[in-house]
Design a binder for these strands. Sequence first.
RNA 1: CGGGGUGUAGCUCAGCCUGGUAGAGCGUCGGCUUUGGGAGCCGAAAGUCGUAGGUUCGAAUCCUAUCACCCCGACCA
Length: 437
Amino acid sequence: MRLSTYFLPVLKETPNEAQIVSHRLMLRAGMIRQSSAGIYSWLPLGLRVLRKIEGIVREEQDRAGAQELLMPTIQSAELWQESGRYDAYGPEMLRIRDRHDREMLYGPTNEEQITEIFRGLARSYRDVPKILYHIQWKFRDEIRPRFGVMRGREFLMKDSYSFDTTADGARRAYYKMFVAYLRTFARLGLKAIPMRADTGPIGGDLSHEFIILAETGESQVFCHKSFLEKDPLALGLDYAADLKPVFDDWTHDYAATEEMHDAAKAAALGDDLVTARGIEVGHIFYFGTKYSKPMGATVAGPDGQPVTLEMGSYGIGVSRLVGAIIEACHDDNGIVWPESVAPFKVGLVNLKSGDAETDGMCEKLYAELTAAGVEVLYDDRDERAGSKFATMDLLGLPYQLVVGPKGLKDGVVEIKARAGGDRETLSPEAAIARLTA
RNA sequence: CGGGGUGUAGCUCAGCCUGGUAGAGCGUCGGCUUUGGGAGCCGAAAGUCGUAGGUUCGAAUCCUAUCACCCCGACCA
């Protein structure tokens, strides 16, 4: 992509309404535009990141055996009356009437919807276990939206739902999602810590929040320092195996949010206690028959008798993650994207647009890298070098490939790693080899 | 919802107290000179001062209402 033609409205100054760093940087980097309180448009650069995150979330769900479908954003009130949540949910749910005066709602979550689908189409115990998920926009009319996309009213969520006929089966599904979440957040470049959670209005008796540590996090969290050294990607990947040992390994050390905090247990850790700020990016629940029972979601058991389904639900805040990643990955000059979610891998900086030799080398590098499948944002604008460096640092692409007349005189270009700032001077051929490696 | 705050040019803000018909910097557009960490000079475009009433000869400025947005609290992916 050429910056001269890209719709990337970069701001030099920080808009007044943005208070936290991720919101400021997203606005300055031209990723989003606010539409109204807690509702945002995603501009091209922001959308690229959102899609990358979505892709990783999807891959890990699929790998764990979950199957993607897509449910509507607009739901009928009837289902929610069946589960009893239509009244319980309160004003946070956006209620709508259609032209026939039928009560509808914009879905804040989809337990009822998926339960309706499953009860209507699954007949036998042979139809389980299943984990179904979708990645869909939600609307919750939050009392106070804030922090940009971190707590929007409209947000993109990955929500999975598991169906089993036994509590044991449901726990196996829970463990699968637990492991999938560990892997997902690790791939996103985040240190996510599972913490025992309150089940809240969704209900149930087993629940974990996945919290990432960031100085600007919303809530106080406490955990054993062992979590900081664990690497989920080092785990084996056998979802058919018994995952309870993995679950136990990740839950036996102390980790809690403020609400679930046990001061005595924490104090017992002594120097091993880490106190930090955290952002909730995922939440998983095992809630048994909370919805299946009132909604009559059963399948025939081996003996022909109906069995009420055991369910769980598993959410990841996809759009929140864009902000959360920035909270965890930035410096004074701007965003520092983990490579897995960066909107482009390489920022090609032409230090002297209009200079035939520099232009020529940039075009060559741009063409060859692009042909090799590397995503390149080429700053071909007629701007001063300082301005281009500042823009690239703000955008936070992992590598800056800097091409200028001084270097070309010696036949070299420069690669700067955004994280850490290491610079390396090398030949154009070596640079291509390095960036396509 | 309770408490606090802000709405003036694309962005950041001044002007309001002490009414007299709108300014700066950045950005944008044009020109010249520059060119390895947000350049300099010259010129230009751009605002029914959130909206609606009211007071007044006259309102960005005073009064009333209303809307929007932001911050602190309870809630959440």
